[in-house]
């Protein structure tokens, strides 16, 4: 147990020392959010309808920037190989890594997505489902990111994103739908529950798969 707490602390330290890991998704998010009104229209009515989808898609794309952070550096300096050799419970370590990556790459974006009230004219009723759906949906996306990152380690190919985006489709649909529901005055809790169900259902499967994928690189 102490061992895992140590790993957690170490991961926190690594991420907080390397500022680019959490600044680049945030910058990407802010730039794209401010580009939509310029590129599409500055009409509040149009933007209001598009806002839920735009925010969710942008969050999805900005995780693409950070998902390689989960394993890439550990792979390059060889610490993953040590972890594999150490005989510790690897899926727990991967879970810790994904969790810390989520805190540093997704949490700031979730906080910043509140600005969409001003920038994309999202009505104030949409804020609560937006935050809740992002809080529950983004961990699932980080899980997919970990799997894609583990599979495409050391290669700069399109396969990581190409694998990750179709997997995240259900989360995207349920997340935007939750916001749209609440804007239309419909109870959105069922969508949140479904998002939670997807997270709980996929968590062990994807963890197992990513550990298997990590092992592939060290035969």
């Amino acid at each position: 147990m102490i061992y895992f707490v140590k790993i957690l602390k170490k991961e926190f330290l690594i991420y907080s020392r390397k500022s680019s890991s959490f600044i680049s998704p945030v910058v990407f998010f802010l730039i794209s959010i401010s580009l939509y009104p310029i590129g599409i229209s500055n009409d509040p009515d149009i933007l209001k309808n598009l806002a839920p989808g735009l925010i969710w898609i942008t969050v999805l794309l900005s995780t693409l920037i950070s998902f390689q952070n989960i394993f890439a550096e550990d792979y390059e300096d060889g610490s993953i190989e040590l972890l594999l050799a150490s005989g510790q419970n690897l899926s727990l370590i991967v879970l810790i890594k994904i969790f810390v990556n989520w805190i540093f790459s997704c949490l700031p974006i979730i906080v910043l997505s509140m600005f969409s009230i001003f920038l994309l004219y999202l009505p104030i009723e949409g804020l609560k489902p937006l935050i809740i759906s992002l809080l529950i949906g983004t961990p699932t996306i980080c899980l997919f990111g970990a799997l894609a990152g583990a599979l495409s380690l050391g290669k700069n190919s399109i396969t990581g994103p190409a694998l990750m985006l179709p997997l995240s489709l259900p989360v995207l649909i349920l997340g935007t739908q939750a916001i749209n529901y609440s804007l239309n005055g419909i109870n959105f809790s069922s969508n949140i529950l479904l998002l939670t169900a997807i997270l709980i259902f996929l968590l062990p499967i994807i963890l197992f798969a990513s550990v298997g994928a990590l092992k592939l690189h060290f035969n």
Binding site: L147, L151, L163, P166, L167, L169, P170, I173, L174, L194, I198, L202, I205, I206, A209, G212, A213
Partner: peptide
């Protein structure tokens, strides 16, 4: 691994 993850995910995609 990808194939199996995909087959787990396909029904979810369909339903959603």
């Amino acid at each position: 691994i990808i194939t199996l993850v995909g087959v787990v995910n396909l029904p979810i995609v369909k339903k959603s």
